[in-house]
């Protein structure tokens, strides 16, 4: 996993959340097991299990006894809601900090966003 200092179990949880948000892991479908995650990411199975349990605690996944973990209905909406509320802090803050460093006024940043064409 990457070396940004964040806990590995959190990175595991984030990757599963990403898959749910972008739709590649549909609601009510089965999430990968901790052993599968451990083998895939080459991490300790206990760490992978901790990431999954975090998602269970958040209500994103739920356990079916003897079968595995599944994506809860409404999980995608829940994650979108949380990520939208974190958007300003995670993305606007560094953007505005850099703009300030370079002396770009907020209005100019707004113009840039208005005229932004996402690369194909």
């Amino acid at each position: 996993m990457n070396d940004d200092g964040g806990p590995i179990f959190r990175q595991v949880a984030d990757l599963i959340e990403n898959a749910i948000v972008d739709g590649s892991l549909a609601e009510e479908s089965q999430a990968p097991s901790s052993n599968e995650l451990a083998a895939f990411h080459r991490i300790n199975p206990a760490t992978a299990a901790k990431g999954l349990n975090q998602l269970v605690a958040d209500g994103v996944l739920y356990k079916r006894r003897g079968v595995g973990m599944f994506v809860a209905t409404g999980a995608r909406e829940q994650l979108l809601k949380r990520r939208r509320s974190e958007f300003a802090d995670q993305y606007l803050r560094p953007l505005m900090a850099e703009a300030q460093k370079l002396g770009i006024p907020a209005t100019e940043v707004t113009d840039m966003i208005d005229n932004w064409e996402s690369p194909r």
């Binding site: 996993m1 590995i8 901790s34 052993n35 451990a38 083998a39 990411h41 080459r42 991490i43 300790n44 199975p45 206990a46 760490t47």
Partner: peptide, 30 residues
């Protein structure tokens, strides 16, 4: 590493491993 992880996941047991290749093994350790 792959075989160790796969077999350990199926058959959990106590493993103590000494190594100088720390970067390679860091994520495997608990």
């Amino acid at each position: 590493y792959d075989r160790l992880l796969a077999d350990y996941a199926e058959h959990p047991r106590t493993i103590l491993i000494s190594t100088h290749l720390i970067e390679e093994i860091a994520d495997l350790l608990e």
